[in-house]
Design a protein around this nucleic acid. Structure first.
Length: 457
RNA sequence: GUGGAUGUAGCUCAGUUGGUUAGAGCACCAGAUUGUGGUUCUGGGGGUCGUGGGUUCAAGUCCCAUCUUCCACCCCA
């Protein structure tokens, strides 16, 4: 048999125990905060019917959905002319009925429509599961990664937006990450585009706005001019592009130019409400109204939110927004929802880069019991049972190897304590406990061990 | 999907205008030390140089293709 070099698909990763434990640290903090706000956990399958996903994320999104080939003789029913046409996307839809989920929001919309009779609205759920995107991988961009979503569906209130923002604040302050939360509203963008008379070019224009931070104000103006917007109009937009302008100034200016735009004023009113509420509660992290923030999947209709870590170049680590029409795509009207999604893997990368993981999460086993031989091993069996019953995570070294080797094992596995029970200890009942960090050894009766370790961990 | 870079031991990398048997550090294993790890010393194992073709007396080195990883665009968490 030919030897195969082992590998995994590009953009996917294996995880070491230490990496899992660090990732769980991130998950646990997010989960705790979600539960503190009354969100309930749900799960959905890794794969959805392909029709559930296609067309929900825009053209680019469709391309990035992983499709699952049908089982069986999937080509037999295809007309020859379709096969001969070699149009992959069309053939793909005929031979793939399932696809891996691209995010957690669209499956959630499907979920609430299907289970509406078992749920009471407004419904707040959280969901921590992996998603898959057929993107080309690079730094902070994976083909399989975890999203941690929280959504409130069935309520139009801006209070929901405010709660989500405070959740973002709580999570990142617990993780010790310095972030800036950017907020915008699609209705404001629609109003601006409408006022400058290019409502038909919404995507093109907002896309250019979005590049502001990256390419700078001059290039943005250049690109806007290329789309056919008159210089006079571009000049009138300039105040919006000064990122560090105070919130009040931006709102005042928007009030002027959006006066006769119904969606524009509506969006502005929503933003105003959010910021008024935020003023009532103290929030540590920076929250900015950023008119250049345009991103977000196609389904967002109102508020859009994006969070970036300061001083780390990794794209957004959390994003979200309000979607009024998502459930109606599955046949349930009047169900506005708003949600956020933490990108656990990017958050992991930020914490790693900033070296912010706490040390104690690297300990798995607290105590190793050295194995001196068959007699001692038998004696240790009951000791390990008692220690575990007292909540001490411990293991007996499985072989009668040299002590040196067993100590090395403890050292490499970051086990803080080693218990040595040889002939002498068995006879006297005075057990030798070594603290690996200090190198000090103490003699204890077995009943005192659990207490000693708990007190010194 | 478009463009650019990269690939040599488990990891990080040297390797001259093409020229004997491809090196180092770290990691691993063994010993110095038969009841004591993390430091030190000694020794050892480990590479068909990403893969497939081509040029040449001779290729890790040059050419082509392909894959991987990384970077930019696009898009996004």
């Amino acid at each position: 048999m030919a030897k195969e070099k082992p590998s995994i698909p590009k953009g996917t990763r294996d995880f070491l125990p230490i990496e899992i434990s660090r990732r769980n640290y991130v998950f646990n903090i997010i989960r705790e905060v979600y539960q503190l706000y009354g969100f309930k956990p749900i799960e959905t399958p890794a794969m959805e019917n392909i029709t559930t996903l296609m067309g929900k994320y825009g053209e680019e999104g469709d391309r990035l959905i992983f499709k699952i080939l049908n089982s069986g003789d999937f080509l037999s029913g295809l007309p020859d002319e379709l096969l001969d046409s070699k149009k992959s996307s069309k053939i793909g839809l005929r031979i793939c009925e399932k696809a891996l989920r691209y995010d957690l929001t669209v499956p959630f919309a499907r979920y609430i429509v299907q289970h509406q009779h078992k749920l009471s609205f407004p419904f707040r759920r959280y969901q921590i599961q992996p998603v898959w995107r057929a993107d080309r991988p690079q730094k902070g961009r994976y083909r399989e990664f975890f999203q941690c979503d929280a959504d409130i569906i069935g309520s139009d209130s801006m209070l929901n937006e405010v709660e989500l923002i405070t959740i973002i604040n709580d999570v990142f302050s617990k993780l010790g990450i310095d972030v800036v939360v950017k907020i915008n509203n699609r209705k404001i963008l629609a109003g601006i585009v409408e006022k400058i008379g290019h409502a038909d070019k919404f995507n093109q224009i907002t896309n250019i706005f979005d590049k502001l931070e990256k390419i700078g104000i001059d290039k943005v103006n250049e690109e806007l001019a290329e789309t056919g917007i008159e210089n006079k109009v571009i000049d009138s937009l300039q105040p919006l592009f000064y990122m560090d302008a105070a919130y009040e100034q931006k709102v005042e200016y928007l009030n002027k130019i959006l006066r006769s735009s119904e969606p524009g004023m509506e969006g502005l009113e929503e933003i105003f409400e959010i910021f008024e509420m935020l003023k009532r509660i103290n929030i540590d992290c920076e929250v900015d109204l950023d008119i250049s923030l345009a991103r977000g999947l196609n389904y967002y209709t109102g508020t859009i939110i994006e969070v970036k870590a300061k001083n780390v170049d990794i794209g957004s680590i959390c994003g979200g927004g309000r979607y009024d029409d998502l459930a109606s795509l599955f046949g349930m009207d009047g169900m506005s929802g708003v949600g956020i999604s933490f990108g656990a893997d990017r958050i992991y990368d930020v914490i790693k880069e900033k070296d912010l993981f706490p040390e104690n999460i690297e300990t798995f086993t607290q105590l190793l019991i050295v194995n001196f031989g068959p007699k001692e091993q038998n004696y240790c069996l009951s000791i390990s049972k008692e220690l575990r019953e007292s909540g001490i995570s411990c293991e007996i070294y499985p072989d009668h190897s040299k002590i040196k080797k067993q100590m090395q094992y403890a050292d490499k596995n970051n086990i803080p304590f080693v218990l040595m029970i040889g002939e002498e200890e068995m006879r006297t009942g005075n057990l030798s406990l070594k603290c690996m960090k200090s190198g000090k050894q103490t003699t204890l009766k077995k009943s005192a061990i659990a207490g000693y370790i708990s007190g010194n961990c």
